[in-house]
Nucleic acid binder design. Structure first.
Length: 629
DNA sequence: TTAGGTTTCG
């Protein structure tokens, strides 16, 4: 390893340098001294762009400053790095980093007079047996409850939510990650990078990340993390006991026993404080009308139109419902024809939309994917009378909707691969194209699908995708606990309120602060015709501002109805512009009148005036709209 | 710059 990592704390290296190496002071870097088995340590104060020499050799120049001699003049020295080592160093060396150089050749610096640095320079290359060690700074990690606006920090967190990287509307990929740590504080980070690989490789809720140099800002009254220059991340599987292997794109990173311990502690904390959803959904377990994440292999893909794209995937299991097949032109379908045909009864068509199209297009056939928040939609019977379910990846990134490519090293992929290999392709070719549900009955229309669904739903199958961080608690435990606390329950629905949607709105009196139900049809009818309503008073009819008509019904009740047509500028209007008041009408009659006239006001007669009814009834009806007092 | 968690409506 040409560039190695070592960590030095309080001047002593934690992972020691080879024991034969001894530190050399800047002032002893002179011609005539023996520098075998000596090393020089300094901080990078300047680096030049990587260039090529005339013969094609890579060349990289950095300036190291000796911090032990920070007071003296000439305390910096040029380091000339050649060949492969130049290339490697250029990738990792950052201003302010500490480096150790060993196995160097010392030579007179031709630029000493101009640059005012040390009279000699150090030349290093792999061929000369040189070594450069990057000395890891002692990183300090800030707990999530100690974040301050405007700071750049290092932190650890357990992934509570994430959006897999997607193409932003700007120039970069974007990934949104919400972290939580044992302080129980959440931090949502918005991460940008033009290079997909530089964003954290998060595959599931519960993964653990370490962020270096993330900028903290306040946004909408909350702390927010955002990528800053030099942002770097490590991601770990959050499973207790799994190997602690970081996923990263960094060429060099510090990872010592201390970090390993932190990850293991966070795993244990997460295991009891963050509910990581159960086994991932398989195609054999899908239900219509839900959202789920699918780990699968890409078998085929095809363009559909400008805003949608087709992915044909399988996970080795069979969806229990007939699934839709998106019609595409054979020439547009990419994938191995023979395999597509062999797997035709096991693959499902997933239609991805809008912002996901670009990423979907770039996917390689055969790659392993996790598609987040696929929507299963029940579709009604087609021309042949068969209903089916459809798989959609709608546009947008809500709820982490998106597509992630999993590496073959991912444990879930390893498991899936082994399973796919165990599937007998000849068997599945002979499989009826109909689903298992169809085979065990006559499953040919929506009613059958629905009754099948009802059977399924006798089990608890409603999946809440939110509050996954809470474990289920028994109702008994909740009833014996003190309030307020947060719980998540799994229970059978016995009854619910409001039974009718309109009951979720109440009438409110701002004077006395009382709340009343909005009257339903029967209540309203009772108010219109109930005992509180007196017969129309003819003395109140035909005034300067309304004309009145009154009649008696021919039925047994001999009900008296009066209608007052309100004038405008002393003129009657066209019916569709007319406001009228009604006395003694039934609910049905009032409804009928609202269809023909602009506004209806139900009223009753007193001795000397018309007045509104009980204020819990609408005081004005305008088409379908009712106004309450 | 981008997005800033809280499902589309094809």
């Amino acid at each position: 390893m040409p560039v190695q990592l070592l960590k030095i704390i309080k001047g002593k290296s934690e992972t020691p340098l080879p024991s034969y190496l001894q530190k050399e002071d800047l002032k002893h870097l002179q011609e005539g001294f023996d520098h075998t088995n000596k090393y020089f340590q300094g901080i990078v104060i300047l680096s030049y762009p990587l260039t090529k020499l005339g013969d094609g050799t890579d060349f990289f120049k950095v300036v190291l400053q000796d911090l032990d001699n920070s007071c003296s003049r000439n305390n910096s020295i040029n380091i000339l790095i050649y060949g492969k080592m130049a290339e490697d160093c250029a990738k990792v060396i950052r201003h302010g980093d500490t480096f150790v150089v060993a196995g160097f050749k010392l030579a007179k610096s031709p630029t000493a007079k101009e640059d005012g640095r040390h009279g000699c320079h150090l030349e290093v290359s792999e061929e000369a047996g040189s070594a450069i060690y990057s000395v890891a700074p002692k990183y300090v990690y800030t707990p999530l409850n100690h974040l301050k606006d405007g700071t750049i920090v290092n932190l650890y967190g357990v992934v509570k939510f994430f959006k897999p990287p997607y193409v932003s509307k700007g120039t970069d990929y974007c990934s949104v990650v919400t972290l939580v740590d044992p302080t129980n504080v959440k931090l949502t980070c918005t991460l940008f990078n033009g290079n997909l690989d530089s964003l954290p490789k998060i595959y599931k809720i519960g993964d653990i990340v370490r962020f270096h140099r993330i900028k903290i800002r306040e946004y909408n009254g909350q702390m927010q993390g955002i990528t800053s220059v030099g942002f770097a991340s490590l991601t770990f599987d959050g499973t207790v006991g799994a190997p602690v292997v970081p996923r990263t794109s960094s060429k060099v990173y510090t990872f010592m026993d201390e970090e390993q311990k932190t990850i293991e502690e966070l795993r244990v904390w997460a295991a009891s404080n963050l509910s990581i959803s159960g086994p991932a959904a398989k195609l054999s377990g899908v239900q219509p009308m839900l959202f789920f994440d699918l780990t699968c292999q890409l078998v085929g893909k095809a363009k559909v139109d400008g805003s949608s794209f087709l992915l044909k995937v399988w996970d080795g299991t069979k969806c229990p419902y007939p699934t839709w097949k998106v019609p595409v032109e054979a020439k547009d379908l990419e994938g191995e024809k023979v395999l597509l045909h062999q797997l035709r009864n096991l693959t499902v068509d997933i239609l991805v939309y809008d912002n996901h199209v670009q990423l979907a297009k770039s996917l390689k056939i055969g790659s392993f994917l996790r598609i987040y928040s696929i929507h299963t939609k029940q579709a009604n019977a087609d021309d042949e009378g068969v209903s089916h379910i459809e798989f959609h990846l709608h546009g947008g990134t809500c709820y982490g909707r998106g597509i992630g490519v999993l590496p073959e090293s991912n444990p879930d992929v390893k498991e899936l691969k082994a399973f796919l290999e165990s599937v007998d392709l000849a068997d599945c070719e002979n499989m009826e194209s109909m689903s298992s549900v169809e085979l065990d009955g006559t499953f040919n229309n929506v009613t059958d699908l629905e009754s099948h669904l009802q059977r399924c739903q006798q089990l608890s199958v409603t999946v809440l995708t939110d509050h996954q961080d809470l474990n289920n608690t028994e109702l008994k435990t909740i009833l014996n606990s003190t309030a307020p606390q947060q719980y998540r329950i799994r229970a059978k629905l016995r009854t619910y309120k409001p039974q009718k949607l309109y009951q979720s709105i109440k009438l409110h009196c701002s004077k006395c602060n009382s709340l009343r139900e909005v009257p339903d049809g029967d209540d309203f009818d009772f108010i219109l015709q109930g005992p509180g309503v007196t017969a129309p008073n003819p003395e109140l009819h035909n005034t300067s501002w309304y004309d009145s008509v009154m009649w008696t019904t021919q039925d047994q009740k001999q009900r008296k109805i009066a209608i007052h047509f309100v004038k405008h500028d002393e003129m009657l209007q066209q019916p569709e512009d007319t406001l009228l008041m009604i006395e003694g009408g039934t609910l049905k009659e009032v409804w009928k009148l609202t269809k023909r006239f602009k506004c209806i006001i139900p009223v009753r007669s007193t001795e000397d005036d018309l007045e509104l009814l009980d204020l819990s009834a609408p005081f004005l009806l305008q088409g379908n709209i009712k106004y309450y007092g």
